[in-house]
């Protein structure tokens, strides 16, 4: 198992958000997580990434068989965990290119690998950016500053492509994307699908799952997984909504 979440309980500011969540993900698989607003999807993503303020009161998260609860966010990142943010953060004054390079080299250093040479790095960024239709001008601009909603999401996928994680969590990467951008981003994700890499795709829309076809679909409600099925589950939800699951969980 690449990721095993066991009986995870999480609180923030004393408020219980996740209540005994179980989830196991094998290498090479794509799991979609759907669920009503406020059910705890982003919380799960943040807890996986190690954001402070989130208190794990019970349970464990194993990544590659090792508990990551005591690891810092950067240590988790270096082990191959990536989070595409629902709301990407702006960093004024730091060029996107510089950010990508600093991040990549930091991860390589943490893994005991050497820094990438400037020509090698530039070649990789240009290639990855080209495929996502991100132009050079955007790479020179400060990270996410003044980017449109869709540009921010594409920038997240660019970072994912550069960092080549083992597990990528995409938190509503489809929201705010126009139809063309949705295709570009989905293709970007599909290109990275491989037997070694797994994805958690958090979304509200079954449409995304037409492009990124999941192996498993979960429904998250009130802080737990209340239903698991195949890709047809997404279609079902589209038709019937979450009402039945919310009452079931209650």
């Amino acid at each position: 198992m690449l990721l095993e979440i066991k009986n995870l309980h999480v609180e923030i500011d004393g408020k219980k958000i996740l209540n005994g969540l179980d989830l196991a993900i094998e290498q090479g698989k794509v799991h979609a997580i759907m669920g009503p607003n406020g059910s705890g999807k982003s919380t799960l993503a943040y807890v996986l990434a190690g954001k402070e303020d989130y208190a794990v009161t019970e349970g464990d998260i194993l990544f590659n068989g090792e508990s990551v609860l005591d690891l810092d966010p950067d240590e988790r990142a270096a082990r191959g965990l990536f989070l595409a943010f629902q709301y990407p953060i702006e960093i004024p004054g730091v060029a996107t290119m510089t950010f990508l390079r600093t991040a990549l080299n930091a991860q390589r250093k943490a893994r005991g690998e050497g820094e990438l040479s400037t020509p090698d790095f530039l070649k990789r960024v240009r290639e990855a950016a080209g495929k996502l239709e991100i132009n050079q001008d955007m790479l020179r601009r400060a990270v996410n500053v003044g980017f449109s909603g869709g540009e921010k999401k594409r920038n997240e996928i660019l970072q994912m492509a550069m960092l080549e994680p083992r597990l990528a969590v995409l938190d509503e990467t489809d929201s705010g994307l126009d139809i063309d951008a949705l295709k570009i981003v989905s293709e970007g994700v599909n290109r990275l699908r491989s037997p070694e890499r797994a994805f958690i795709v958090i979304t509200h829309y079954q449409r995304l799952l037409d492009y990124i076809v999941p192996d498993v679909v979960h429904v998250l409600s009130r802080g737990r997984i209340v239903k698991t099925g195949g890709k047809e589950l997404a279609l079902e939800l589209e038709a019937s909504g979450y009402a039945q699951y919310q009452s079931e969980a209650a």
Binding site: E52, D72, I91, A103, A106, L163
Partner: peptide, 24 residues
């Protein structure tokens, strides 16, 4: 947190953000 999620240590993240702050 955003920087650290991408692999920067706490110190590297601080330095990067500060360097952005003083860029002008």
């Amino acid at each position: 947190f955003y920087c650290r999620q991408r692999g920067l240590s706490a110190e590297e993240a601080t330095a990067l953000v500060v360097n952005g702050f003083v860029k002008d």
